[in-house]
Design a protein around this nucleic acid. Structure first.
Length: 470
DNA sequence: TTTTGAGTTGTTCGA
DNA sequence: GTCGAACAACTCAAA
């Protein structure tokens, strides 16, 4: 009897998981495998190790109900697949749309062909596969709006209606003799333990979150998502990233809600995710450097001290520091604040965006290669549709606009708790006597700003101008 | 092939 | 306090 093997990559879910559902319908025995390749993770995706470790636990339990074992294999993918010769198995998996993953798929497919093992790949966690969205002349879109207008239409023309569900299989077997109990894939530093306070990692939880979001918040999403002290965004990003929920499921549930501007805005964000995937696959060089090559001449500063201050949330700009600390503490940062801290690193400190990209990759539970690289290049202005060079976020003004009373700042930068709202985003301007009276002296209890906004802005503008000559 | 309109998220300055 | 203009020039998409 042929055994169905489902290779779980980013798909820790039962619902709308094509590879898994297919296997459960076609085999009496099914085993799910998760391959943990240390090289792929080490010092690059630290926060995600925690999420995946939790995912394995909750997903393994869910699979058990259907008589399927989740086997965890610590190996390089190619090493593992090269040993399957002669086994009576069929292999299934859902695609992950990163160039490195798709290249790996090609290698593995070749091995499977050579070993005469039957396999089938399924569409992964996207609305449209990037190959199906091109301009009329067959070339990729480089601007978001036309991309999304087109992609939305293509999707609407063939919204998947497959509602088939996973079936309980007859017999349960551990195929690879792997340890499927506890496997330690967690980072060495235990900073991740805090994440337990903020996240409940399971497929069920993603549906609970989505339900609340659709019921309570999506109608106000267009406005509320900009204010970091409000619970305005969906907070689904880590669940989407690791496949606890399928974006097609989200689309379908959104389309049942009254269509309003909030729903459109939210689906737009799913569109950005699709656009980023398209970009990194058509222009994989952007994973390694500037998409706009003229930025290779940008006079980046190498300043380890400032980079460290940024990472630790000690820049002296409260809105920036709050964001960086929120990320370190919770593994997630509010979207608007991501832009503010990104702009600050790239424009105020003039540190290469790749430093920021690397740091986010390690710290974010929702880290996704496509979004991360595309958004950092957008912030830096070197990406596909570049931000105008003069768009330099003013960290004081952004604070005053979007965190007027300083609620967000005070939550993540508690040493400023006693500060009056009027000065919460420019604490250095408060009279020294007053600072002493509330026991919060700038330069002692909270850092002085590491750069002066006006000066930094001018230097950034000059740096951008230097690209234009030649 | 040429032409035209548009392009995620901003800030500053001066009236 | 509010509002509009200026901040460049270029590339992209589509007609």
């Amino acid at each position: 009897m042929t055994v169905g093997i489902v290779w779980i990559k980013d798909d820790f879910r039962l619902e709308n998981n094509s590879a898994l559902i297919h296997a459960s319908k076609n085999h009496d025995t099914v085993s799910a495998i998760y391959i943990f390749n240390k090289e792929f993770f080490d010092n690059r995706r630290e926060a995600q190790k925690w999420w995946i470790s939790k995912s394995l636990e909750s997903f393994g339990k869910n699979l058990n109900i259907y008589n399927i074992n989740l086997e965890i294999i610590i190996s390089k993918e190619v090493d593992f697949f090269s040993k399957l010769k002669g086994k009576n198995i069929n292999l299934y998996w859902n695609k992950v749309y990163e160039p490195q993953q798709l290249n790996l798929d090609r290698k593995i497919i070749e091995m499977l062909d050579n070993n005469k093992i039957h396999y089938k790949l399924f569409k992964g966690n996207v609305l449209n596969e990037y190959q199906s969205i091109t301009k009329k002349d067959g070339t990729p879109f480089k601007v978001f709006s036309p991309f999304w207008r087109h992609a939305e239409q293509i999707y609407l023309d063939k919204v998947p209606s497959d509602t088939s569900k996973i079936q309980k299989v007859k017999s349960k077997k551990n195929i690879f003799n792997s340890k499927n109990t506890f496997v330690n894939i967690l980072p060495n530093k235990d900073w991740y333990k805090k994440f337990d306070n903020y996240w409940n990692v399971s497929e069920e939880e993603s549906h609970v979150q989505l339900k609340h979001f659709l019921k309570e918040r999506i109608s106000k999403y267009g406005n509320d998502r900009d204010f970091p002290s409000l619970n305005g965004s969906s907070k689904l990003s880590p669940y989407i990233r690791n496949g606890q929920i399928n974006v097609n499921t989200i689309w379908q549930k959104c389309s049942k809600v009254n269509k309003n501007i909030g729903v459109r805005k939210y689906l737009n964000e799913l569109g950005w995710r699709e656009f980023s995937h398209s970009l990194i696959n058509y222009f994989p060089q952007m994973l390694k450097g500037n998409l706009r090559r003229e930025f290779d001449r940008f006079p980046w500063e190498k300043n380890k001290k400032n980079l460290e201050a940024w990472k630790k949330g000690l820049t002296g700009y409260p809105i920036v520091d709050a964001g960086m600390r929120q990320m370190y503490e919770t593994g997630w940062m509010h979207n608007r604040i991501r832009m503010v801290v990104g702009s600050f690193l790239v424009k105020h400190l003039r540190i290469n965006w790749q430093e920021g990209e690397r740091h986010f990759r390690n710290c974010l539970l929702d880290f996704n290669e496509a979004n991360n690289v595309a958004q950092w290049q957008w912030v830096a202005g070197c990406g596909a549709d570049a931000a105008p060079y003069f768009r330099i976020f003013n960290p004081i003004l952004q604070g005053e606009k979007f965190d007027k009373n300083g609620d967000y700042v005070k939550k993540w930068v508690p040493e400023l708790n006693k500060y009056p709202s009027k000065y919460i985003h420019k604490p250095w301007e408060l009279d020294l006597k007053y600072q002493k009276s509330i026991d919060t002296v700038i330069g002692k209890d909270y850092p002085e700003p590491i750069v002066i906004h006006e000066e930094a802005r001018k230097k950034a503008l000059d740096a951008f101008k230097s690209l234009k000559k030649n």
